[in-house]
């Protein structure tokens, strides 16, 4: 464990908590893409199948349980508990265009052609594009609530910090996972536009509004 990975995990955890609290407290999932949250639930499910068979550390296991539980809770709130506030008309990204290519790619490019490894690879590829429905929805509505932009910022920063974690691990641990690194780069690049808007607008107290 290094500081970049730890800060990355904390940032990821806080993004998940921010979203849970936003929906629960405001009893509304307005402006939130249910499709992205569904994709994240798939990402965690396919990545943590070894949750019970492969103990790495208490930290690792407990974080995995929290990620899986909170992603399902978020999906449940959007599609069940507060579905009346779900803005389906603006959440129209075709997720099959994300799931099918990443699934095919995980069969073609992976470290080991075994079910668990292919599912892990699929989850890595899917995670790198899972935020697209959410970013697409923000661009369609032309704006995002400030709390939603904090959620997106924390979520974007987590994988950016992981990029530094991989540099660190390459330098000091001879650790190198090209699949995770390339997917992490794609994931971070997708946030660049949002990062720019967040830093130039939200941090100056303005509302995040995209040129529609």
């Amino acid at each position: 464990m290094n500081i970049f990975r730890f800060l990355g995990d904390i940032s990821h955890l806080s993004a998940i908590i921010i979203l849970l609290l936003k929906i629960w407290k405001s009893r509304s999932c307005a402006g939130i893409s249910g499709k992205s949250q569904l994709l994240f639930a798939i990402v965690f499910t396919t990545r943590y199948l070894d949750l019970f068979t492969n103990f790495i550390s208490f930290y690792n296991t407990s974080m995995k349980v929290v990620y899986v539980a909170s992603s399902y809770a978020t999906v449940w709130m959007i599609y069940s508990k507060f579905k009346a506030t779900y803005d389906g008309n603006h959440d129209t990204f075709r997720v099959e265009f994300l799931i099918v290519p990443t699934a095919i790619l995980s069969f073609l490019v992976n470290h080991d052609f075994t079910p668990l490894e292919i599912l892990w690879t699929f989850s890595i590829y899917l995670e790198s594009v899972a935020i697209l429905p959410q970013l697409f929805m923000v661009s369609k509505t032309g704006e995002a609530e400030t709390i939603t932009s904090h959620y997106l910022f924390a979520l974007g920063i987590y994988r950016t910090l992981y990029l530094f974690n991989w540099i660190w691990r390459y330098q000091f641990e001879e650790f190198f996972d090209l699949i995770a690194i390339v997917a992490g780069l794609v994931q971070t690049v997708l946030y660049c536009d949002f990062f720019y808007l967040y830093i130039t607008k939200v941090l100056k107290g303005k509302k995040l509004s995209l040129p529609a």
């Binding site: 070894d50 492969n54 190198f176 996972d177 090209l178």
Partner: peptide, 10 residues
């Protein structure tokens, strides 16, 4: 080189 099989990152 590539990490050990058990992916130790979240």
């Amino acid at each position: 080189e590539v990490l050990s099989e058990d992916h130790d990152e979240l």
